[in-house]
């Protein structure tokens, strides 16, 4: 087994993997929301006297699909860069 070395291509691949896992991890951890990212969350409450249902908005974070898709795209770009860096590296 070849030991891992912190060469430029390997560092780029590690960064790509970290981005990919991080993006999907955040998305899954905040509920795997299939819409866009939300930075405020709504809870519907009822006013006792009037019977009005009203939304109470509070700060919160739910990652949308653009987070894993964006990090996946960045990870692919880094992986391609790592391949290019591999080719430019002089043969040992």
């Amino acid at each position: 087994m070849v030991p891992f070395a912190w060469t430029l291509p390997n560092t780029l691949r590690a960064a790509a993997l970290a981005l990919l896992l991080g993006g999907f991890g955040v998305w899954l951890a905040t509920g795997a929301h299939l819409g866009f990212t939300q930075t405020s969350l709504v809870t519907i409450k009822r006013d006792e006297i009037t019977g009005i249902d009203y939304p109470e908005r509070r700060p919160g974070f739910v990652a949308g699909v653009e987070i894993p898709l964006g990090t996946a795209a960045a990870a692919i770009a880094l992986a391609l860069l790592s391949l290019a860096a591999d080719r430019r590296r002089p043969a040992a």
Binding site: L34, G35, F36, V42, D47, T50, I52, Y54, P55, R57, V65
Partner: peptide, 21 residues
């Protein structure tokens, strides 16, 4: 004064309905 009065709006969109207040 209680901030209960509200209007909610919804527009259909391909990924998800856009809902606001």
């Amino acid at each position: 004064p209680k901030g209960v009065n509200n209007v909610q709006f919804t527009l259909d969109a391909p990924l998800e309905s856009i809902t606001g207040t």
